[in-house]
Design a protein around this nucleic acid. Structure first.
Length: 646
RNA sequence: GCCGAUGUAGCUCAGCUGGUAGAGCAGCUGAUUUGUAAUCAGCUGGUCGGCGGUUCGAAUCCGUCCAUCGGCUCCA
């Protein structure tokens, strides 16, 4: 007998060789029906595999992330089987589970396929699922495995096998489909009750754009039809929060083919919003000892030769601008740091001056491949809330912490609760790839980790993801559809101070090289506004709303009173307007609700005679009459709550 | 840039298997003077993404280019 420890720490005894399914059965029939896989001493495996020694286990079902992953991985196999039946001769690349479902990369050869084929494939998948196919795990030698796929003519699997070690190779066989796979899989395919193929796309084999492009089919499966229905509703809801849709509806920004792709036009309401964000950050930065600067939008090619960006990105940038007579070359600036380095160099710096913090809302232009462009999140011209901190190596930690405080303040003011902090460090196996001394790297990496820890942040550490010039920390946020975007970034840089020969005089009267920290808490105004839109669905916090209130006179008779109210609001710095159209109140309210204006102030006979406004809150409905003074005070109080002392 | 899909009025969309376009909203004009999510009527508005081709005839079929959407690759 062996001892099995359950998650609640109870220990039960089972015969050696017991499986997850057996254990589930011994607990309840319902659990046995729903178990998808099992975690044994931290490793997820088939619920049908034998457990041969004492272990701590967790039975995984649909309510566990790992359980879903198992189902989706098995679903990928099932989809492959369906496709192999419907399209004989196809070859398979890889087919993993992902955050929301699974995909399989397939070489369809000459056979054409599109999303029109999805219903047929879905039908086949469900048909196969009902067969209650079991997944049979087989240890197989490398040579046998290679000979299997050679016979089958699947060069992709052979290539994958070549990277694997003999003795660690397993096949999984289910129904008529056998795949190279380390598992785990669900007990049988009947657990898959609903399937939806989501999209079809080209995907380069092994992520290499020089290699063949396979056809990737994305799908998702569920253990209940209801779960699929709910998911489809979620997708519909997410579409409504798409910043491109909201940006159009709320008249925040637009694109014009004539202006050029990826070049956003900020409409008055969007510009208003953006200005509020910039003012907010400027205030925070002023308090944090930053100095605002302004630089031109182009820079001489020599500037980028010095910074090294010319060598690395010259070819993938917008073509240089040349002067008509001298033929001098200028680049549209793709980043602000070289300009800021030159600002640092305008006078000799003493260690007493450090840190020097130079900030700018700098608009930069980068050539992005046309297929990359995406609303405001990926554009060719955008404004970074950039700043560069020049400091001594000893100051890096404090400065890093200062920047982090700013990022956290912003996230708090905007109610961003879900974000991922990614710390990118250098690859310890490959230290030569990086510039800067070991000592400085260690100091900076330690500083970043400590600061993150002190803040109590959930962090993900990525080794080898550091820039060649220094470690960094990125703040990632998801959009409505769960796609991850990088917003804020803090990067330590040893490279540019070297290339620009930046110096300061230390207390030893010797020249020293400062360390540079690049940081942008929003990242770019464009992307930040995009993500903010998707998070708030356009219902901005009061302090940010382009229009905070709109006065709605019941009829033309009350327009004068409405204008009087407006003046009082404007005098108190409340952004408002009057809807003086010849429309009924219901219409004006409807339109204001659709524009997501926080406060609607209905005024008519009663309000005029009593000096009040009838307040309606967006999404909440009628709040009843208030004196104008009380309303103003309430608005100011709410903004104060949102922003704190700022 | 690559793969796939899509592209009809300012917006949202209809237009079956080819017979030179239609609705609602918006806009304009007029009537109405309105009380918490759409007042009524009339009018204006489109070389059906661009360019070629097939056809007696193309929004509809074919080619190509552009843009958008979903991915891949990329992102200083």
């Amino acid at each position: 007998m062996i001892n099995i420890t359950l998650p609640d720490n109870t220990v039960r005894q089972y015969p050696e060789g017991v499986t997850g399914v057996d254990i589930a059965k011994s607990i309840s029939e319902g659990l046995a029906r729903n178990v998808l896989s099992i975690q044994v001493d931290g490793h997820v495996m088939d619920a049908t595999r034998s457990i041969t020694a004492d272990a701590r286990i967790r039975l995984l079902t649909w309510s566990d992330l790992e359980g879903k992953a198992t189902l989706w991985h098995s679903s990928a196999h099932l989809m492959a089987e369906a496709i192999e039946i419907l399209y004989p001769g196809v070859k398979f690349g890889i087919g993993p589970d992902i955050e929301n479902g699974f995909y399989y990369d397939i070489d369809f050869g000459d056979q054409a396929i599109s999303s029109d084929d999805f219903p047929k494939i879905e039908k086949k998948i469900l048909e196969l699922a009902k067969e209650k196919q079991v997944f049979i795990r087989k240890d197989i030698s490398k040579s046998e495995a290679i000979s299997y796929f050679t016979k089958k003519g699947d060069e992709y699997k052979i290539e994958l096998l070549e990277g694997l070690e003999d003795g660690q190779i397993t096949f999984y066989e289910s129904g008529r489909f056998t795949d190279l796979c380390r598992g785990p899989h669900v007990p049988d395919t009947a657990l898959i009750k609903a399937v939806k193929l989501l999209s079809i796309a080209g995907a380069y084999w092994r992520g290499d754009e020089k290699r063949k492009q396979l056809t990737r089919i994305y799908g998702i499966t569920f253990t209940k039809q209801k779960e699929l229905d709910d998911y489809l509703v979620f997708l519909e809801e997410a579409k409504k929060r798409d910043h491109r849709k909201l940006g159009k509806e709320l008249e925040l920004f637009a694109f014009s083919q004539k202006v050029g792709l990826g070049l956003p036009l900020w409409l008055p309401r969007g510009a208003q919003l953006r200005e509020r964000l910039e003012m907010f950050l400027k205030k925070v930065q002023k308090r944090g000892g930053y100095q605002q600067v302004i630089c031109p939008h182009i820079g001489n090619v020599e500037l980028y030769k010095t910074s090294g960006h010319y060598q690395k990105y010259g070819e993938s940038s917008f073509r240089p601008i040349t002067t008509p007579v001298e033929g001098e070359e200028f680049f549209l600036k793709p980043m602000n740091c070289p300009h800021h380095c030159e600002i640092y160099k305008t006078k000799p710096r003493s260690y007493r001056d450090l840190p020097v913090r130079i900030a700018e809302f700098g608009t930069v232009y980068r050539y992005e491949q046309s297929g990359e462009l995406h609303g405001l999140t990926r554009v060719r011209g955008f404004t970074q809330d950039d700043a560069h901190i020049f400091c001594t190596p000893e100051q890096v930690k404090d400065e890093f912490k200062g920047v982090m405080d700013i990022v956290m303040l912003i996230f708090k003011a905007l109610d961003f609760k879900e974000f991922i902090v990614q710390i990118s460090l250098r690859d310890p196996e490959n230290k030569d790839k990086y510039i800067g001394s070991d000592e400085n790297w260690e100091k900076a990496e330690r500083a970043i980790r400590e600061v993150a820890e002190e803040q109590g942040l959930n962090t993900v550490i990525e080794l080898g993801e550091a820039a060649f010039y220094g470690p960094k920390m990125d703040f990632m946020v998801k959009d409505a559809l769960g796609r991850k975007w990088q917003l804020g970034t803090i990067q330590v840089d040893y490279n540019l101070p070297e290339r620009f020969e930046l110096e300061y005089i230390g207390n030893d009267n010797q020249k020293h090289r400062p360390v540079m920290i690049h940081r942008a808490p929003f990242g770019s105004m464009e992307r930040f506004v995009a993500v903010l839109l998707e998070h708030t669905a356009g219902n901005f916090p009061l302090w940010l709303a382009p229009d905070q209130a709109i006065v709605l006179p019941i009829s033309e008779k009350y327009q004068d009173y409405a204008k009087k109210v407006l003046t009082l609001l404007n005098n108190s710095d409340i952004r408002a307007s009057v809807d003086d159209r010849n429309e009924k109140a219901g219409k004006k309210i409807r339109d204001a609700e659709l524009m997501k204006i926080p406060f609607m102030l209905v005024v008519g006979e009663r309000e005029e005679s009593e000096g009040t406004v009838s307040v309606r809150r967006h999404g909440k409905g009628d709040l009843g009459p208030q004196s104008i003074g009380d309303f103003i005070a309430a608005v100011q109080e709410e903004m104060h709550q949102e922003l704190g002392e700022l």
